[in-house]
Amino acid sequence: MTNEFHEKNRLSWNAATAAHNSHKGDQAAFFRNGGSTLFPEEVELLGGIDGLDLLHLQCNSGQDTLSLARLGANVTGVDISEEAIRFARDLSAQAHIPATFHRADLLTYFTEQARTPGRYDRVFASYGTLCWLSDIDAWAQGVAHSLKPGGRFVLVEFHPFLMIFDEQWEMRYDYFDHSPIASDGVSDYVALSREGLVPDGYEAGFEAFVNPHPSVEFFWGIGDVVSALAKSGLLIEQLREYPYANGWKGFDGMHDSGGRRMVPPQDTVRLPLMYGIAARRPE
């Protein structure tokens, strides 16, 4: 069933990626003019990456990948979507920022790369990645095997506690239910978040997008993620929680508190909306 789930998600992401990029205008010009899609949190956790070999997991259409390359890293991006990788390669060429991109199911990629472990100084993933993984332990092992001794893994992700709420902030979903979650497909969350996810000016693009392909998501709590990384042999150096979500307006009434940090309505108590992890492979 895992392969069937991943195949559904590949098709769903192919459709959604085209919709997402339709809102972003001339991205090549954005990058040629010095633009970056990174937020301060991931830059801080990564530290200096100039001259380092970096693996970007679930890189989507490559915008963050190219932003990392602009900081001096030798970056390889991996994503399950053909549409995303095609766009990323074109964007890399048009922006004149070199990077390497591979189209692969991430867990399959890790299995194939197990023959050549320890290739990267940094491994990085961010924002809405873990919910597409059917096996968190295999993921963590792949991360660990990809790192050179002394290399670091950085994850910035939306907080799983947030996922107990429906879009109207009503508690509806069981935090401890790990059953696969079927949905109507990857949404056009860029249209929902608008300027939050489009720093160079939002465009209408595809309107009222409906994904023709359903998708399947998986829920992993922070305990699942940290335990998987620890079991893989990585040392957890930092675990941070943030009361805002970078860029993403996933719930009613969310607004920009400054710097594209999205927060709940003003009458809502502060909640953990995002978290970051930095982990190191021992020397």
Rank of each mutant, 00 (worst) to 15 (best):
T2L: 15
T2K: 15
H6V: 14
E7K: 06
K8N: 05
K8E: 15
N9H: 00
N9D: 07
L11W: 04
N14E: 07
T17G: 12
A19S: 10
G25F: 03
A29E: 15
F30M: 04
F31K: 08
F31Y: 13
N33H: 10
G34C: 00
G35Q: 12
T37R: 05
E41M: 06
E41P: 07
V43D: 03
E44T: 15
I49D: 02
D50L: 08
D50Y: 14
D50E: 13
G51N: 02
G51Y: 02
L52F: 10
H56P: 09
H56C: 09
L57T: 01
Q58M: 09
C59G: 09
N60C: 13
S61W: 14
L66T: 06
R70S: 10
R70V: 08
T76R: 15
G77F: 08
G77S: 08
V78T: 00
V78E: 06
D79A: 08
D79T: 04
E83P: 00
A84H: 01
A84G: 09
A84R: 00
R86N: 08
F87A: 09
D90P: 09
D90Q: 15
D90H: 15
D90F: 12
A93D: 11
H96F: 12
H96E: 13
I97G: 01
D105Y: 11
L107C: 04
L107W: 00
T108V: 06
T116H: 11
T116M: 13
R119A: 10
Y120N: 01
R122M: 12
Y127Q: 11
T129W: 12
L133H: 06
W139Y: 07
A140V: 15
Q141F: 12
Q141D: 00
G142F: 13
V143K: 03
A144W: 04
H145E: 11
K148Q: 04
K148L: 06
G150R: 11
F153H: 09
V154D: 10
H159T: 07
H159F: 07
P160Q: 03
P160N: 04
L162P: 05
F165E: 04
F165H: 02
F165Q: 07
D166S: 05
E170F: 05
M171C: 14
M171Q: 10
R172T: 06
Y175E: 01
D177G: 06
P180D: 00
D184Y: 13
R194W: 06
E195H: 11
L197P: 03
V198K: 05
P199I: 11
D200Y: 02
E203A: 12
A204L: 15
F209N: 00
F209W: 03
V210P: 11
N211L: 10
S215T: 05
V216Q: 01
V216D: 01
V216C: 04
V216T: 04
W220I: 05
G221M: 15
S232L: 04
E237T: 01
E237Y: 12
E237V: 07
L239E: 01
E241W: 05
E241R: 05
A245M: 08
N246E: 06
K249T: 14
K249V: 08
G250S: 02
G253Y: 09
D256C: 14
G258K: 00
R260M: 08
P264S: 10
Q266S: 03
D267T: 11
T268S: 10
R270E: 14
R270P: 08
P272K: 00
P272F: 05
M274W: 03
Y275P: 01
Y275W: 14
P282I: 02
P282G: 00
